[in-house]
């Protein structure tokens, strides 16, 4: 069964075996407004936890996306080039950003689960 974890930077990661799929949360897409462009990392790129790996842009804002864990990118969501609005419509579905092989699963422990993230959002007011 897939486990989903969340970061304080409003990224989510869905873990299936050694692979993690990463995107931004419903809260994040609401904050951004209409997404117009997503710059996703190329397959093969090695990324470190906390490294800036992607950029998501609305008309008024650009946000850096930090990888919630370390690993190697295996696939980027190419469909976002044509339909960046998917991030608004289905942030946790077809609006995903990229997939990576997770280098160190213990890094997942530092992330929040769904309940923890919900509490975190409440603390933001």
């Amino acid at each position: 069964m897939a486990v989903v974890k969340y970061s304080e930077e409003h990224e989510w990661i869905r873990v299936e075996g050694d692979t993690g799929t990463i995107g931004i949360t419903q809260y994040a897409q609401e904050q951004l407004g209409d997404v117009v462009f997503v710059d996703v990392p190329a397959a093969g790129r090695k990324v470190a936890k906390g490294e800036s790996v992607a950029v998501v842009e609305s008309v008024k804002a650009a946000s850096d996306i930090y990888s919630p864990v370390s690993g190697e990118v295996v696939e980027a969501n190419a469909a976002l080039a044509e339909s960046p609005g998917d991030v608004n419509l289905e942030p946790m579905g077809k609006g995903w950003f990229f997939k990576l092989t997770i280098a160190d699963k213990s890094e997942l422990d530092e992330l929040m689960d769904e309940a923890g993230y919900a509490t975190f959002l409440k603390s933001l007011g």
């Binding site: 462009f37 842009e57 609305s58 008309v59 008024k60 804002a61 650009a62 850096d64």
Partner: peptide, 12 residues
């Protein structure tokens, strides 16, 4: 495409 520009991206 203003997100390239200094008033949004500042140091980036």
């Amino acid at each position: 495409l203003s997100t390239r520009e200094q008033h949004i991206r500042r140091e980036k």
